[in-house]
């Protein structure tokens, strides 16, 4: 029985919207800010240390990213990162650590469907789109920039 377009359904949709518990945007944003800020602060600490060791700016940046990726991968393995994500929301998703989490989580999850079509294939369910859109947009914008500089 479809009521999808009927006035009854429209009235109901309004009711649902009205009864939805209001999420506290403020507290969510503050938690995202703090979580994301701390991850970046950690990154800056690692980077400062690497620069202090004498690495060049670009190299320090790459090693910092790799360190954070390792840390996030390990925390995902231990089952901690999803808790951080539940607290921090976008604050834990946006940093490169969230990218690492999005690779490790399906890898672990689909291990039970085999090491090839399970783990390895599903590894990219979220990272895949990020890489695809990243590469396509970078190539597009980068070429435009190079051609029309």
């Amino acid at each position: 029985m479809r009521e999808r377009e009927s006035p009854k359904a429209k009235r109901y949709a309004r009711l649902v919207e009205q009864e939805k518990p209001k999420i506290s945007l403020f507290s969510n944003v503050v938690r995202a800010f703090v979580t994301g800020g701390i991850i970046c602060l950690l990154g800056e600490t690692i980077r400062t240390y690497l620069l202090y060791l004498g690495l060049s700016q670009p190299l320090a940046g790459v090693w910092m990213s790799i360190s954070l990726i390792f840390l996030a991968s390990f925390l995902t393995g231990l089952g901690v990162y999803d808790e951080i994500g539940r607290f921090g929301g976008a604050g834990s998703a946006i940093p490169i650590t969230g990218f690492a989490n999005s690779i490790v989580a399906p890898a672990m999850e689909y291990r039970s469907e085999g090491a090839i079509l399970g783990l390895a294939a599903r590894l990219f369910i979220i990272a895949g789109p990020v890489i695809v859109y990243g590469l396509v947009s970078a190539t597009g914008f980068g070429l435009l920039r190079s051609v029309f500089r």
Binding site: K20, I23, I84
Partner: peptide, 17 residues
Amino acid sequence: ERTFRFPTELGVQRAPT
């Protein structure tokens, strides 16, 4: 979760609903 949503270890916030 696996069938309908995300891998369980993915750090996502659940909607209040």
